[in-house]
């Protein structure tokens, strides 16, 4: 709190000195570096060509030192109990075909390496771009003869986090051309469409005003490289679709459903805005 007042004071002084409008004074994301197990995680990178940003910042850069520290140690990261569940489920036989994930995909550290970095992506059999969760459920219902998991269930969150972990440190690299173009364009349109009683779009806060405070929240670029993410506000890990819903409720809009074509498209577009940032799953945020 005292730090914020200081920043505010500085902002007002700068305003007085330069005659700038106060809104031009931006509280930058911090310059801390994220290392996990001695491995550097890229939380800041030059934006790719065509990006509305000059630099990309992971949401990690906008959090307090205390929150940041929790993510740098897997023993302290509160998302890891669900990663452990995912690890168990990977080996667990389920469904009429008598198979587990491992029956086909063997060692996740090899077969799932890089998968999260490319999600959401085209699912050939389903015939559209799908989130990681939908790829998992397709395997469960069509290959294993098992029941689909619910989107925000512990099993699905655990599996998404476990699969995500195998790509940790790898750059986000989703495909947005070819068969993915339609979903990308749909997501982009959603990103810039103002909705809700407050009449706001994603861009209004996360593109035009990142770095600033909105009441007690430090606005980030809305990067999603850390999902599924453990959030203190939830006291739990959650999916990016759950996060999208929360934002929509905040602006008094009718949220889309988790797993809807709209949210998958938005996920793909927002992921593409973070190309080059490291996958951080499971991240820790407030």
């Amino acid at each position: 709190m005292s730090k914020r007042i200081k920043v505010l004071g500085f902002g007002l002084t700068a305003l007085a000195m330069c005659g700038l409008s106060y809104s031009a004074v931006v509280a930058e994301p911090n310059n801390n570096q994220l290392m996990i197990d001695g491995k550097k995680i890229t939380t800041n990178v030059k934006a790719p060509k065509g990006s509305p940003f000059e630099k990309l910042y992971s949401g990690w850069r906008f959090r307090s030192a205390e929150t940041q520290k929790l993510q740098s140690d897997d023993f302290e990261n509160p998302g890891f109990p669900l990663v452990d569940l995912g690890t168990e489920l990977w080996q667990k036989v389920d469904g009429s075909a008598g198979k587990s994930c491992a029956s086909c995909h063997n060692d996740a550290s090899k077969s799932m390496k890089g998968v999260r970095a490319t999600m959401p992506k085209m699912h050939k059999e389903i015939g559209k771009v799908q989130s990681l969760q939908q790829h998992v459920n397709y395997c469960r219902t069509e290959r294993m003869g098992a029941k689909a998991w619910k989107w925000e269930s512990n099993q699905m969150l655990g599996m998404a986090a476990y699969v995500g972990l195998q790509s940790r440190g790898m750059p986000v690299n989703v495909k947005i051309d070819g068969p993915a173009k339609a979903a990308h364009d749909k997501g982009k349109k959603l990103y810039y469409t103002r909705v809700g009683q407050l009449d706001m779009s994603c861009a209004g806060c996360h593109e035009e005003n990142f770095g600033k405070m909105i009441r007690a929240d430090h606005l980030s670029q809305g990067q999603i490289n850390g999902f599924p993410t453990y959030r203190f506000k939830w006291q739990k890990m959650g999916s990016v679709h759950r996060r999208f819903k929360g934002c929509m409720k905040n602006i008094r809009a009718k949220p889309y459903k988790v797993g809807s074509d709209e949210f998958v498209a938005l996920e793909l577009y927002v992921a593409s805005r973070g190309k080059g940032l490291s996958v951080e799953s499971p991240a820790v945020r407030n």
Binding site: V195, G196, Q197, L198, D199, G204, E208, R252, A253, K254
Partner: peptide, 24 residues
Amino acid sequence: TLMPGFYREAGLNRVNKKFKGKTI
């Protein structure tokens, strides 16, 4: 501008049903 209209109900998209047809 990002500022919402506090006494406006027309021309809005996907307003949550709790707030539909109401002004802020």
